[in-house]
Design a protein around this nucleic acid. Structure first.
Lengths: 178, 178
DNA sequence: ATAATTACAGAATGATCGTTCTGTATCTTG
DNA sequence: CAAGATACAGAACGATCATTCTGTAATTAT
């Protein structure tokens, strides 16, 4: 997973992947069918271990403001904590290969939609006790900001600068909902 | 340029690039020094011909709301108008290779910063006659939304859905500035 | 006209690629 | 114990890669 994240899909060689996973070549083909299958498995693992905790911040446990702040703090941390793996496997690597590979494009759409659903769910929880608004579009915007933050981290941006962006987004959400 | 945009950096072969540009192999090496140089030239051309017109919408010519709406309409159009080249050369292709190549990472940082500067400039123009606010962070957020929209387009999203996201972002900006 | 220079098609080069295969060691079963 | 199955290191395979080189045709200069 980290090799794909750091180097990209095409630049990640089977040799390198075997070494990094400690898995023999024959087993890789037997278990995953090839490079494509291994990549999809890496993404599933990334979603479970990295995106999962980020999205869990969206469980209603405090005010919307506090939950979104926690969510974005985790987004920024995920994107910047390890200089070897800047940004996001999905937004930076899967997105590139999605251009010419339909399997990957569908996977990208699926993963993006899942995050937006999660955000919209949290917003719906707030709206149920508030004003009528288009939570789906707001969720789309918050997801877009998250991805923009991931990309900015890939270019070398510091966490404190990304935190500022996140704060604007959280503020905007509060205003949109109220 | 379109080959890199559609296929990605590593998947774009020199053969394919020569055919697409109508340029003989020897000339490509003579003029650009190699694949890396050609890619950077393609990015410069993309910035001039595609990002340029988008950013020009930020010249103060109407209300901030109107200018940002025009800007985002162009972002969405750039990202979705041609199904062969979905998304953005910079946010989808350059960002991927930036992970393991410092030249590309610096270029990504440069291009991202340039767009943020442009947006901040437009916001400063508005603030000069209004309230005090952190235009840099707001510009960062608007740029992040733009990139998020580009990525969402790469996954196959339709323009009308992306327009909704843009509208939320424009509304948020108006509120932040006033 | 001839000689020199330029432009270009495509071959050559050395390397790398993803996938499949082979041989050997180890483990399991009867 | 022997036979069969499994796991694995790494070679083989056919293909592709980016870069450099070669030979030839076209153009330019004298």
């Amino acid at each position: 997973m980290r090799v794909f994240w750091a180097d990209g899909y095409d630049a990640a060689s089977i040799d390198r992947l075997c070494r990094a996973t400690g898995m023999p070549r024959a087993s890789l083909y037997q278990d995953f069918g090839g490079k494509e299958g291994l990549f999809l498995a890496a993404i599933a693992h990334y979603v479970e271990t990295r995106i999962g905790p980020v999205a869990d911040a969206l469980e209603p446990s405090g005010s919307l403001d506090a939950d979104l702040s926690t969510y974005f703090a985790r987004v920024v941390a995920l994107a910047t904590d390890d200089s070897q793996t800047p940004g996001c496997l999905i937004s930076c690597v899967l997105a590139e290969v999605a251009g010419a590979n339909d399997t990957f494009r569908l996977e990208l759409d699926r993963r993006f939609t899942a995050l937006e659903d999660r955000i919209a769910q949290r917003l719906d929880h707030e709206v149920a006790s508030g004003a009528v608004t288009d939570t789906r579009a707001l969720a789309g915007m918050l997801a877009a900001v998250s991805r923009g933050i991931m990309l900015r981290a890939r270019s070398g941006a510091q966490a404190q600068d990304l935190d500022k962006i996140a704060r604007v987004a959280v503020r905007a959400s509060a205003r949109e909902i109220v």
